[in-house]
Design a protein around this nucleic acid. Structure first.
Length: 234
DNA sequence: AATAGAACCAACCGCCCGCCG
DNA sequence: TCGGCGGGCGGTTGGTTCTAT
């Protein structure tokens, strides 16, 4: 017996979402909240796959999304987190308020990958492509801006480690851009405040950083054997 | 102004995992 | 304990926009 399909493909729309579909989805989630994605399309009167609705909401319609270009600081944070976590886009997104895993993944593939390559670094390993000449050297230690923004890096790392996840599904809903801006701003402000408050206390990893970040799903962690690769090399 | 190639990004696909009966 | 289901994730695709010639 095979897996049942997530929806009746013959009766679902595909491709770009229309304004009307967006409105229906927003209205439904406002009224009923998130969840039950499989049954959502039917009850919301949408001819879409439940997964598609979820994706549309998470990646585009959520009120707390921060649209627009990534900042240099976000760039650095993404690079650093990727160095630690690998292609765990949802985990990385959890540390960047207002950004989605899909957005970060796309940004990585289109911008950062090229940025690293142009600096002679392997985007997967973050090490020099020409071999083991400079082992353990991360992108941030090789760049000009890194030396200029050491403090920012400290702050960013601190944020990534100390701050809680920004959940992908905020409980409150809001439709206006103003409101989303406010949310994003307040999240950033909170982050900055937390960082400012703690920046004088350098992070000392007590446990495997990946564990700390929730990378490991189970209790049996292999970090004992590769501990150094999980910690910030400073 | 037209066209080709590159870049970008929204959306889809299929697999995996945790929960629950 | 097992199997099905729902949700989540990462990889990939394909349409659209931008840029160079």
């Amino acid at each position: 017996m095979g897996r049942s399909p997530c929806c009746e493909k013959a009766h679902t729309n595909k491709g770009a979402w229309t304004k009307e579909e967006d409105q229906r989805l927003i209205a439904y989630i406002r009224a009923h909240g998130e969840g039950s994605w499989r049954s959502l399309p039917k009850t919301a009167g949408l001819l879409r796959c439940g997964k598609s609705c979820r994706l549309r909401w998470i990646n585009y319609l959520r009120p707390d999304l921060k649209r627009g270009n990534f900042t240099e600081e976000e760039d650095d944070l993404i690079i650093k987190l990727h160095e630690m976590l690998g292609n765990k886009w949802s985990l990385i997104a959890g540390r960047l308020p207002g950004r989605t895993d899909n957005e970060i993944k796309n940004y990585w593939n289109t911008h950062i990958k090229r940025k690293l390559l142009s600096r002679g670094l392997d985007p997967q390993t973050h090490r020099p492509i020409d071999g083991a000449a400079k082992p353990q050297v991360s992108i941030l230690e090789t760049t000009e801006e890194a030396s200029n923004s050491a403090t920012n890096l400290e702050v960013n790392l601190d944020l990534s480690i100390r701050l809680p996840f920004y959940p992908s599904a905020p409980a409150q809903s809001s439709s206006s851009n103003e409101a989303s801006d406010t949310m994003a701003t307040s999240a950033s402000a909170a982050a900055a405040a937390a960082a400012a408050e703690e920046v004088h206390q350098p992070f000392r990893p007590a446990v495997c950083l990946r564990h700390h970040l929730g990378f490991h799903r189970d209790e049996t962690c292999v970090c004992q054997t590769v501990a150094n690769s999980h910690t910030i090399g400073r």
